Amino acid sequence: MEFVMIVEPDEVGRKRLEAVFQTEKPSFSYQITGRPEEALDILEHQKTDVLVCETSLSVLSGREFFTMAKMISPDTVRVAMTSAEHVKDILSFLNECDIYKLIMKPCASFADFIEPVNAALEYHRLKKQAESDLEQANMNLFFSEKDFERIEERQKENVMLYKQAAEVVMTMLKQHLTIGQMDSVGEYMMEHYLRDLLGYYLETMIHENGNYLMGYNRLKMNFIMRMPDKVSI
């Protein structure tokens, strides 16, 4: 559920809002506080879709509060509340702090308050959707579904390729390799060792685009300690 943080330092105004919210039952969750420092703390630790704040504060100025709010949670849509006599004071930082809406007090009705809040929520939804669409579009520039299918198909072809190549090389080795003084178990172990080695090497060569040095170094690191004793060619 979407969350709205409301800062109303005036106790009478705060209680009026709380009473109306209990009656109206908005579609979003909310918290109303009279302390801007509490609002900033909540903003830091809880995902907040819309922040509504009175600009006449005792501890901070409206500019300071909204500047800090923007730094803490840049994705939160900010809405300012003020009275007619303070409008000139906040015009200087409306753009600077990215204030989306301005609620003029006193509100003649609850609609005068809730409509800007709902508009800010809708703006937040649209902004998030636009960001998601852009991210998806950027992803599609690099990897489409067909790209992934081609990569998967190429991977299967590579697997078949090095298996076939390993079989060919193993056949040649069996025809020309003489293993002296080895029983059947030793020959079996040698054959599987060579098969593993060849498969690993061919796989490395395919995936490293024919980099022989890379294939050699990986084989040396992974197989040098496993080389069987008493092998003569």
Rank of each mutant, 00 (worst) to 15 (best):
M227N: 13
Y200M: 10
L60D: 07
S144I: 04
N95Y: 00
A119H: 03
L161P: 03
S27H: 06
H176E: 12
T48W: 02
L202W: 04
M189G: 02
Q46H: 03
V168C: 02
N211W: 05
D75P: 02
D75M: 09
A108C: 07
V20I: 12
E122N: 09
P36L: 05
P74T: 04
M225Y: 13
I206Q: 10
E24G: 01
K156S: 06
T76M: 04
S58G: 13
K47M: 06
T76F: 07
F66R: 01
S61N: 02
F93Y: 15
E157Q: 11
G186K: 03
P26G: 09
E122H: 08
F21E: 06
Q164C: 00
N222K: 11
T33M: 05
D98Y: 11
V87R: 06
A119L: 11
T82E: 01
Y212N: 11
E203G: 11
L94Q: 02
M81I: 00
S29R: 11
Y201E: 08
F93A: 02
Q136H: 12
V12R: 13
E64L: 08
S58L: 13
D10A: 13
M68Y: 09
E145T: 09
S232K: 12
K70P: 00
G215N: 08
G62S: 07
S73F: 01
E131V: 03
I179S: 03
E8Q: 06
R218T: 12
K70M: 09
I99L: 09
T171L: 12
F65N: 01
I99T: 05
Q22V: 01
F142Y: 04
I114V: 15
A80Y: 00
E203R: 14
Q46T: 14
N138T: 07
E96P: 00
S132N: 12
P106T: 03
V169A: 14
L51D: 02
L141N: 11
I99N: 01
V50S: 04
N217F: 10
A165G: 07
A166W: 00
S92H: 11
G34C: 05
I103F: 06
S73A: 15
L91A: 04
A111F: 04
E11R: 15
K146A: 15
M170Y: 05
S61V: 00
E153S: 09
Y212S: 14
K146E: 14
A137L: 12
M205V: 10
A120Y: 01
M139Y: 15
K220P: 02
L51F: 04
T204R: 10
K146T: 11
V20S: 10
Y212P: 06
E54C: 10
M190T: 13
V87L: 15
D196I: 00
V20G: 00
V168M: 08
M182K: 09
D49Q: 13
G34P: 05
L177V: 08
I42D: 03
Y188A: 13
V169L: 11
V59I: 10
D183P: 06
N138C: 10
G13A: 05
